[in-house]
Design a binder for these strands. Structure first.
Lengths: 191, 191
DNA sequence: GTCTATATCCCGATAGAC
DNA sequence: GTCTATCGGGATATAGAC
């Protein structure tokens, strides 16, 4: 997931920050916590990042881009299959990468106005892609969703909230959650 | 919602804290913010509460108790109607009281271990009530939910996440959200 | 009960040696 | 690039007058 981040120390710092932010929240995490988790001194944070907020922004940006990519070129021979695949992948992503997903979904408010605007744009893309998949099914007469935006909101909401309750020690694997959710959504929308 | 809290200054402080915690998060909120919102001096917080965390606990406890009460004695002539009423009320509560609901759902981690244990107990009650309503429908052969706990989790999750995305300036009223969600859940579970 | 003033601590970020 | 040491600011909570 962080494989493109270089050099090595910068990547370790980002991973440490993501874990700390997910665990305790952005404001409760100190730069000393992050440095310590990465096995470096408090000052080392500022060699690779301008500020603690910059660290948050990098995590948020990369996380949003990845969750957006999950909804790109979703395979499927018809809208029903495409929606199932989209929901299954998107829900599974929020379980599999629940650490990053929590930062992505719950620390938006700690971003600077400029950085916040950047990720809001990415979020618009995510909503747009899910909406167009649902819209295809509605146009083909396969889905019954009189309130298209409301249905899109509910589907995204269901998947996103997985990041809140998911526990790796729980009895459901990310794959099982994806399959369960794809089935629930199919029943929710099919006419 | 806070009508039982007395004296007046203590109630104003609790309301101020709930708004600040929901808006910026617990850790980003200072006791000066809270006092200032309540129109009092920074020291006044400690006349009515032992600490900032105590303020959070009171909000969390009252909020959990209220959202639990919403799932008590849900009316309905059959399991289908009872589930619709439960989902509609529970989702509506998370929209109507989204300020408190955000504190309830997203600031659990800032509670002391003892206080955290108390609200976890209340949360078990919430899950139990929703699960028994769904179980009634399964036993009557009306719902198709092979994974009862998984279905309960998904239904609660859908309603809870309303607190994250709901905006009073949006075009859907809490009542409309409740009705939309009751319908989605009914389709999700009915056999 | 409420205030002003302050004790005590810890945070984000920087300076400067190596 | 990484360290040790530290600055400047702001946090929670308390002391003591009224």
């Amino acid at each position: 997931m962080w494989r493109h981040v270089t050099p090595d120390a910068a990547r370790r710092m980002l991973i440490a920050a993501a874990h700390a932010f997910a665990d305790k929240g952005y404001h409760a995490t100190t730069t000393r916590d992050i440095a310590s988790l990465a096995g470096m001194s408090p000052a080392a944070v500022y060699i690779h990042y301008r500020s603690k907020e910059d660290l948050l922004f990098q995590i948020s940006k990369i996380g949003h881009e990845l969750s957006l990519s999950v909804l790109s070129d979703v395979p499927g021979k018809d809208p029903v299959e495409r929606l199932s695949n989209a929901v299954s992948s998107f829900a599974r992503w929020h379980a599999e990468y629940h650490t990053t997903a929590r930062v992505v979904q719950y620390e938006l408010g700690a971003l600077s106005p400029e950085h916040h605007a950047t990720v809001v744009e990415l979020r618009r893309g995510i909503e747009g892609r899910m909406r167009s998949i649902i819209a295809e099914g509605v146009e083909a007469g396969l889905f019954d969703a009189p309130d298209l935006r409301g249905a899109t909101l509910a589907v995204l909401s269901l998947c996103i909230d997985v990041a809140r309750w998911y526990q790796p020690t729980g009895k459901r694997t990310p794959e099982q959650i994806g399959a369960l959710y794809a089935d629930l959504v199919r029943r929710m929308l099919m006419s």
